[in-house]
């Protein structure tokens, strides 16, 4: 059988990569995709734990997370489209009309 720690490590690596991407990427869409990567890491953790614990609850949580991710994607991409209409750019550095 696959050790739980290996699955969790995979999950943590994906989560960290997503978080790192969130910080270093500059394109809004890529940044958003990094968030999706993080959510997937969470899902993997849920599935891994669901394997170890009695009951299917962990699998159901993944189901809910996927639904939420879909809702978030719809709204997020709409926001990004509106951003592009206003500025003709997707670079996150350009989102700076308000400064200290």
């Amino acid at each position: 059988m696959i050790p739980l720690s290996h699955i969790l490590l995979l999950s943590v690596i994906l989560f960290t990569l997503g978080a790192a991407g969130f910080i270093i990427r500059r394109n809004v869409i890529t940044v958003f995709m990094c968030i999706e990567l993080m959510l997937n890491a969470v899902n993997l953790a849920f599935i891994a734990f669901a394997r170890r614990l009695p009951g299917l609850d962990g699998q159901l949580f993944v189901f809910f997370v996927i639904v939420v991710a879909a809702a978030e994607a719809a709204v997020g991409l709409a926001i990004i489209v509106a951003l592009y209409r206003n500025r003709n750019s997707l670079a996150i550095d350009d989102v700076d009309s308000m400064k200290l």
Binding site: G18, A19, F22, F32, I35, A82, L83, V95, D96
Partner: peptide, 19 residues
């Protein structure tokens, strides 16, 4: 522009936090 930026920032950081 400002309303849109507000929404972009809120959305990106909010989703990040949710994760």
């Amino acid at each position: 522009m400002q309303s849109n930026e507000s929404s972009v920032k809120y959305f990106l950081l909010g989703s990040f936090a949710t994760a």
